[in-house]
Design a protein around this nucleic acid. Sequence first.
DNA 1: AATTTGAGTAACCTAAAAGTTACATATCAT
DNA 2: ATGATATGTAACTTTTAGGTTACTCAAATT
Lengths: 105, 105
Amino acid sequence: MTPDIFQTIADPSRREILHLLSRETLTINELAENFEMSRPAVSKHIKILSQSGFITIRDIGRERYCLLNQDGFNQLQEWIAYFDKFWQNKLRKLETVLNNKSNNA
Amino acid sequence: MTPDIFQTIADPSRREILHLLSRETLTINELAENFEMSRPAVSKHIKILSQSGFITIRDIGRERYCLLNQDGFNQLQEWIAYFDKFWQNKLRKLETVLNNKSNNA
DNA sequence: AATTTGAGTAACCTAAAAGTTACATATCAT
DNA sequence: ATGATATGTAACTTTTAGGTTACTCAAATT
């Protein structure tokens, strides 16, 4: 079952992984060096990030290179876009009110 | 301790609450009517949403009206903006490569 | 003043998430 | 072939998140 994107980025370690991968492509072991936790724990996080579309894995020999995948971020953007409309609409309504005020003055 | 915004939106019920509030302002009890869970459970979610800046509460008598607050959404936008830069940068680099190719042709 | 209503809190329970260790597997180097 | 390295998986433990019920308090209603 593919994990939900909100759940995926709720974990600080996973967000840190994304941050590290924004600087450079890294293997699982290289990633693990940046954390206190064990390598299998990192491995699990990678799986979740991969399944929910935040990273892509490129196998080269016995190594797995992790790189950012835009899909996950786009899904998140879509969610926020809905609420962006809400705020824009609110602003528009406010402007209408202000316009009516000046018209009636 | 104020909860982190990612943790806050990780819960489906809380996202549903935000969705409901994008349509109309509701009191805690009115919100609770939309869910299977008990009112105290909803009350807890409201507290978390409020503390992390996704909603604002306006007390009127014994009722508490919940409305969306842009702060939480903005924080989320900021996080995504960092990675947006990553993708834009990647695109820019790709363009540079393509330009060099045509120059050398 | 007594009752009802809206809501917060405390104590507790349960389920799920995140971590661990131990083991398995495949690739690389010698 | 043998040993070392990179990684995945399984079984287990611990922590934490989300839910419940019971209780309290304050505002509205009668």
